[in-house]
Simulated scan of single mutants.
Amino acid sequence: MTDLRLVIFDVDGTLVDSQADILASMRAAFASAGLEAPARAEILSIVGLSLPLAIAELAPGIDPATRDAMVEAYKASYMGLRIEKGTPQSSPLYPNTREVLEALIDETGAGAVWWQRAYDPAAVERDTAVKAALKDRGTDVRSFAGHLLFELFVSQQCADDHPSKPHPAMIEAALSETAMPAHRAVMLGDTSFDMQMARAAGVTAIGVTWGYHDAARLRDAHHVIDDIRALPALLEEIWETTA
């Protein structure tokens, strides 16, 4: 019997820090509609929702046409900033992220086996990884391509193909693609929407405090960590209870 596991990662606020571009692009979206942009904290509070829902939350009462135009203005600004600055500067990885991901896929380190062998249960001893994206496909493709992270993940899900968080569809699709039962999976994310999504999908919710929602908003998490370097030990602890 295989001991395969699944680790699901949110992207923005968990693996990469895009808040400068998020703030600038949301302000550009509001400016395009002649509206005053919300405060920084209010903008960051809705990170994790799909863009139409996020803008509707920040500008209640706007008509659908204006909302859709603001969504396009946001995307244009975000992509322009990404092209201008390049991915490593536009959406830098959080400290120690790459090192932890690479350590987890090192069989001699954390005993984790991800990506290529994930579809061969007889060859897998422990883990595989997949990311659940929080924005549109183009944004996440550029983030992962820019950081050369594609090879670490066996599945990519995004709100272009599913309902917005906290609906569990993205996690359910990842579980289906990897033939993984929910009790053998965890979700790592920085927002309340991530934790609610994980709970709704029946997977273990791990909140991180370095992202866009503070610890108080991560109350639905089963576990909370302050440093990604704590993840391997926490996973070992979780795996011991989900044999």
Rank of each mutant, 00 (worst) to 15 (best):
103 A>G: 14
175 L>R: 01
175 L>D: 08
80 G>S: 09
216 A>M: 04
19 Q>E: 15
209 T>N: 15
193 F>R: 01
36 E>C: 02
94 Y>M: 06
67 R>N: 14
38 P>T: 03
220 D>M: 05
71 V>H: 03
127 D>G: 06
8 I>N: 10
2 T>P: 14
5 R>E: 15
45 S>H: 07
181 P>Q: 13
204 T>R: 08
69 A>T: 08
115 W>H: 15
175 L>C: 01
64 P>R: 06
16 V>T: 11
235 L>G: 00
38 P>M: 06
19 Q>C: 12
60 P>T: 07
86 G>L: 05
178 T>I: 06
143 S>K: 09
235 L>T: 00
139 T>R: 09
144 F>P: 04
213 H>M: 00
98 R>N: 15
88 P>T: 12
162 H>R: 10
40 R>Q: 13
112 A>Y: 13
24 A>V: 10
194 D>P: 06
163 P>T: 06
123 A>E: 11
11 V>G: 03
142 R>M: 15
236 E>Q: 05
151 E>A: 08
226 D>C: 11
193 F>N: 00
213 H>Q: 09
10 D>F: 02
33 A>V: 08
47 V>M: 09
190 D>T: 01
36 E>W: 06
144 F>I: 00
175 L>I: 03
73 A>D: 13
171 I>K: 01
154 V>F: 03
62 I>M: 05
195 M>T: 00
202 G>Q: 04
143 S>R: 09
180 M>D: 01
148 L>W: 03
234 L>A: 02
4 L>C: 03
196 Q>D: 15
240 E>F: 01
130 V>W: 04
43 I>T: 06
37 A>R: 05
141 V>K: 06
101 L>R: 03
88 P>W: 08
111 G>Y: 04
184 R>S: 00
166 P>M: 11
81 L>A: 11
158 C>D: 14
101 L>N: 09
83 I>S: 14
215 A>V: 11
146 G>F: 01
71 V>M: 04
95 P>S: 15
50 S>M: 02
215 A>S: 08
149 L>M: 05
206 I>T: 01
63 D>Q: 12
34 G>F: 02
193 F>D: 05
28 A>L: 04
114 W>R: 10
182 A>E: 12
189 G>V: 01
235 L>V: 04
42 E>G: 10
89 Q>A: 14
